[in-house]
Simulated scan of single mutants.
Amino acid sequence: MKKSTNEFIIPFVGLKIGTHRYEFNIDKSFFEGVEDTLIEDANVLVELAFEKKETMMIAEFSISGTVATPCDRCNDPMEMSIHGDYRIVYKFGTEISEDENLIVLHPETFELDISAPIYELLVISLPARKIHPEGECNEEVMGLYNKYIVNANEPEDNDWDEDDEDWDEEDDTDEDWDDEEGEDEDDSDDDPDNDKPIDPRWSVLKNLN
């Protein structure tokens, strides 16, 4: 996250016990210096209700507005509305917190930098899939997408031989093979070119015809 300005730092040591309210206007300058940001520009109002107690502090963030972010489909900027709420509990100690909504502050801490939770709230308020409404994507990019991406995902022509389309492996049982072998054996007896010796008695009968 970028280096914060004084605008997003709350010196809570001097605050009285109770709830204190803040407002922040988020624009393009908020994202300057942020690497790999998903948001390029914004017009967002952040409302913060900061409650200070004896042993802890509770920050209730609420955002509403619009942001500019790249379209997941054509990568052109698009504007979308976002709304969201975020609650963080701050307490003092030295242990490590495994709860993302609980931040443990060193006992000597005297101020809070709220720029990071604001940015996180902006990001998690974006929808999982950010795309232009139908027909508003970059036409040139979509043309390339349809040409190279969509066609590449289409199944290739089946090289299966049409003569084998009706072949069913399950129907090709051992019994069928046995029947075919039996037929071959029977046909071999009627084959005049069979090389087996002919019984002399059959030869005599053939000559009678």
Results as ranks from 00 to 15, higher is better:
2 K>D: 02
3 K>I: 00
4 S>A: 10
6 N>E: 09
9 I>C: 01
10 I>W: 00
15 L>R: 01
17 I>P: 03
17 I>C: 14
18 G>Y: 08
18 G>L: 05
20 H>G: 04
25 N>E: 06
26 I>K: 01
28 K>C: 04
28 K>D: 11
28 K>W: 02
32 E>T: 13
32 E>P: 06
35 E>A: 05
35 E>D: 13
36 D>H: 08
43 N>F: 02
43 N>M: 02
44 V>T: 01
50 F>Y: 14
57 M>T: 05
59 A>H: 15
61 F>I: 00
63 I>S: 09
63 I>N: 02
64 S>C: 10
68 A>Y: 06
68 A>L: 08
70 P>A: 07
71 C>T: 00
73 R>H: 09
73 R>L: 06
75 N>S: 14
79 E>G: 02
80 M>Q: 09
81 S>Q: 08
82 I>N: 07
84 G>D: 13
86 Y>S: 15
91 K>M: 15
94 T>D: 13
96 I>W: 12
97 S>E: 13
104 V>W: 11
107 P>F: 01
109 T>G: 03
111 E>S: 12
112 L>P: 00
114 I>P: 11
116 A>V: 12
117 P>F: 04
120 E>G: 14
123 V>F: 06
125 S>G: 11
125 S>Q: 09
126 L>R: 03
128 A>V: 05
131 I>H: 02
134 E>V: 01
135 G>L: 05
138 N>A: 02
138 N>T: 02
140 E>K: 05
142 M>Y: 11
142 M>N: 02
144 L>W: 08
146 N>M: 14
148 Y>W: 09
150 V>R: 15
152 A>L: 11
154 E>Q: 14
155 P>V: 04
158 N>Q: 07
160 W>I: 12
161 D>C: 10
162 E>W: 10
163 D>V: 10
163 D>I: 09
164 D>V: 00
164 D>K: 05
168 D>R: 04
171 D>P: 01
172 D>F: 14
175 E>I: 15
178 D>K: 15
179 D>I: 13
181 E>D: 11
183 E>Y: 13
187 D>Y: 10
187 D>G: 01
189 D>Q: 06
192 P>L: 04
193 D>R: 11
196 K>G: 07
198 I>H: 06
201 R>N: 04
206 K>D: 04
208 L>H: 12
